[in-house]
Lab assay of single mutants.
Amino acid sequence: MTEYKLVVVGAGGVGKSALTIQLIQNHFVDEYDPTIEDSYRKQVVIDGETCLLDILDTAGQEEYSAMRDQYMRTGEGFLCVFAINNTKSFEDIHHYREQIKRVKDSEDVPMVLVGNKCDLPSRTVDTKQAQDLARSYGIPFIETSAKTRQGVDDAFYTLVREIRKHKEKMSKDGKKKKKKSKTKCVIM
């Protein structure tokens, strides 16, 4: 069974824990209790493949930012979460993405942009803004509501699919490099 290491990042209060708990335990946590770091595991079937999701729910508070490099190193894919009623959390996505790329030393890291709290009427981040940002990053965008469960499975499952595509691409690139290195030079 394939294991996928997913990391949920975003500013404090955007609903990272609520999304994760909704996926794992099928219930909505409405009281806000700032996370330092929590880890969850769940076995699911995605596109006919049974897999184990190892999900790291991270601290959004700035005082825990020193811990970010460590979990970013171990993560295979990242859910970059903002709240649709919090423009600052949307603007912060850029910083999370840049930090992930720096730590992973790669421009090509599996990510999904997630606009959470889409059940709320007080939207300050337009869907088109988020779609445009995701398009500019070359990553999928999904709106979710941890409260109603809308888009929750889709967000995590899409990230797994992005990781699969990335692994497939990397193995193809690896095979191309191996083929090239088999060419021999004969000096007579």
Rank of each mutant, 00 (worst) to 15 (best):
N116D: 13
M72N: 14
Q61Y: 14
S17Y: 03
T35M: 00
A18G: 05
M72L: 14
C118K: 11
E37V: 01
D154N: 09
A130M: 13
A66P: 07
M111W: 13
K177M: 07
N26Y: 15
Y40R: 01
I84E: 15
K175M: 12
P121D: 14
I100N: 04
G12P: 02
L159M: 10
Q25M: 14
A130I: 12
I84Y: 15
K88L: 12
T58H: 03
L113E: 05
K117L: 15
Q25W: 04
R68N: 15
I36Y: 01
K172D: 02
Q70I: 00
E63N: 03
S17F: 01
M72P: 08
G75S: 04
A59K: 00
V7G: 09
S181A: 10
K128Y: 09
A18T: 05
L113R: 02
K88Q: 07
K104W: 15
N116P: 05
L113M: 10
K167G: 10
G60N: 04
Y96R: 02
Q150N: 09
G115M: 11
R68L: 14
G15Q: 08
L6R: 01
S122V: 08
V152G: 06
T35V: 00
L120G: 14
D119V: 03
K179N: 04
S39P: 00
Q70A: 00
E37T: 00
Y4W: 02
I24L: 09
T127M: 08
M170I: 04
D54H: 02
M72Y: 15
T50C: 14
R123A: 12
G48T: 11
E63S: 03
K42P: 00
S65R: 02
I84T: 14
R164A: 01
D126W: 08
L6H: 02
L56V: 02
I100F: 08
E76N: 04
K128I: 10
I163K: 04
G115P: 04
L79M: 04
I24K: 01
E107R: 10
R68Y: 15
K88V: 11
F82S: 09
G115Y: 10
K175F: 13
V125W: 11
V114P: 05
S136G: 11
T50E: 01
Y137Q: 06
Y40E: 02
E76T: 13
Q150C: 11
G15R: 03
Q22T: 08
Q43G: 01
S89G: 12
S145F: 04
K165N: 11
K165V: 09
G15E: 08
K104P: 03
L79A: 09
H94Q: 13
G48R: 10
Y157A: 11
T183C: 03
T158N: 09
Q22S: 07
E37A: 00
A134D: 02
I187F: 09
S65Q: 06
G12N: 11
S39W: 02
S106C: 14
L52E: 02
D126N: 09
I163T: 14
K176Y: 12
T58E: 00
T20P: 02
E3Y: 07
T127F: 07
L53T: 05
L6P: 02
M67P: 13
Y4P: 15
M170A: 15
V81I: 11
D153F: 03
A155N: 01
P140L: 06
D30G: 06
L133M: 12
P121W: 12
I55D: 00
L6M: 12
S145E: 11
D105E: 09
H27C: 10
T124G: 11
T58D: 00
A59F: 15
I187N: 14
G75E: 04
Q70K: 05
D153S: 06
V160M: 05
C80L: 14
E107L: 11
G115C: 12
A134S: 12
I46F: 04
R73C: 08
D153H: 04
M67W: 15
T74V: 15
K5N: 15
A11M: 10
Y32C: 01
D38N: 03
T20Y: 00
H27G: 06
T183H: 03
Q25N: 07
E62T: 07
D33Q: 07
V103I: 10
G12Q: 01
L120Q: 03
D92Y: 09
F156C: 12
Y32D: 00
K104S: 14
E63V: 06
A155Y: 01
